[in-house]
Nucleic acid binder design. Structure first.
Lengths: 152, 152
DNA sequence: GTAATTCGTTGACCTTGATCAATAAAGACG
DNA sequence: CGTCTTTATTGATCAAGGTCAACGAATTAC
C-alpha cells in the first residue's frame, strides 16, 4: 500500500509483522502495527474512497492474504457471516483507536509507555524501540530516558 | 450520563449542545461535542459493557431523545433500516476519531487549532474558547497566544 | 578476525506549551 | 446603571519532551 492511492484492499496476515505509517517531513509516524491473525488495511481510505495518507510496509518477512473490496462484497452476499466479521473488525478498530486517543488526551509520555508495556508487552518484546517510540509519538531518546528512570 | 456507570443508552439531540468529557485530576478534558441532529453516547462503554470513563453534560439548554440499548435492539428487529443507521453512525464516529488521532500524531497545537477553525468553524463560533482549548488538548492561554500570532 | 551499519544510551542545550498571577473584557443580574 | 462572575488576554517563569552530537553495544558484511 502506497501513500496517495485509494486503498481498496484488506489483508489478513498469516505470519510476520507489518506497520502502517504516516509521513511527517521525512519521518515515519506509526499509525499501527499488525501481526499474525490481524487484518491490515487503510480502513479510512477504504471507507471514504479517498487517497490514502498512509503507507503499509513489512517489519519482518510476512505472508498476507489480500482481498479487494469488490470481491469482499461479492463474498459477503453469498456468505452473510462475512458481514459479521467485518462489523466485529470495525468495532475492534474503533476500540483500539479510542484507547489510543484517550491515552494521548490523558497521559504523559511515560504513562503511555508504561501502559503499552503492560497492555501490549507482546509488541514491546518484538518491535525495536525506535518504532515503539514512533507509535507513542515520542523520540527514541525519550523512551530511553523513561526506561532509565524506571529501573533505577 | 455519569462516570463509572455502564452506558446503555444513545441520545439524539433535537436542539442544544452537549459535551462528553474525561476527567483528569480535577479538570474536564473534552472528548467530543454534539449538537442538533447528532447522536450522543459513550459508545465505548455501550459496546464493551464496561463502566464509562466519561461524563456527558449540557453546554446549552438541550432537548435529547434517549433510547436504551434493549429498545434499540428490539426496534432493529422490526425495522431493519435501523441497523443501517447504526452502521453509518459507527463509521462516522470512526472517521472523526481517526482525524483527531491523526491530528495529534502529526500537528502542533497551532496547526490543530487552524484546522479546527477551517473544518469546524460552526463549533468554534458557538463554543467558548476554553472548551475548544480542552478539545485540542491545550490550555486556554495557548489558544489566546495562537490567535494573537495569527492576526498580527 | 575487523569494518561497517544499526540501534540504544547519555549529555548539553533548545522549543513548545504549561503554570501562575495579574488585568481586561464581556455577560448576567440586581 | 453599577456590581458580580465568567471568560479572554498578557507577561514571567517552568517543565516535558525535542534536537543534536557523541559514544557504546550489537549485528551483519567482508
Amino acid at each position: 500500500m502506497e501513500e496517495g492511492k485509494i486503498c481498496n484492499k484488506v489483508g489478513l496476515i498469516e505470519s510476520g509483522l507489518m506497520k502502517c505509517v504516516f509521513h511527517k517531513h521525512g519521518d515515519e509516524i506509526i499509525f499501527e502495527f499488525a501481526f499474525e491473525n490481524n487484518f491490515i488495511s487503510d480502513y479510512y481510505s477504504f471507507v471514504t474512497d479517498t487517497p490514502s495518507a498512509k503507507e503499509i510496509k513489512c517489519i519482518e518477512d510476512t505472508t498476507v492474504y489480500v482481498i479487494t473490496k469488490e470481491k469482499l462484497k461479492k463474498l459477503g452476499r453469498s456468505h452473510p457471516f462475512i458481514e459479521g466479521i467485518s462489523r466485529q473488525m470495525n468495532e475492534k478498530l474503533f476500540l483500539r483507536m479510542h484507547d489510543r486517543l484517550k491515552s494521548f488526551l490523558l497521559d504523559s509520555a511515560s504513562e503511555r509507555y508504561m501502559k503499552l508495556m503492560s497492555e501490549r508487552s507482546d509488541l514491546v518484546q518484538r518491535i525495536p524501540q525506535y518504532l515503539i517510540a514512533s507509535y507513542l509519538n515520542v523520540k527514541p531518546e525519550t523512551i530511553s530516558r523513561i526506561r532509565k528512570k524506571n529501573t533505577l
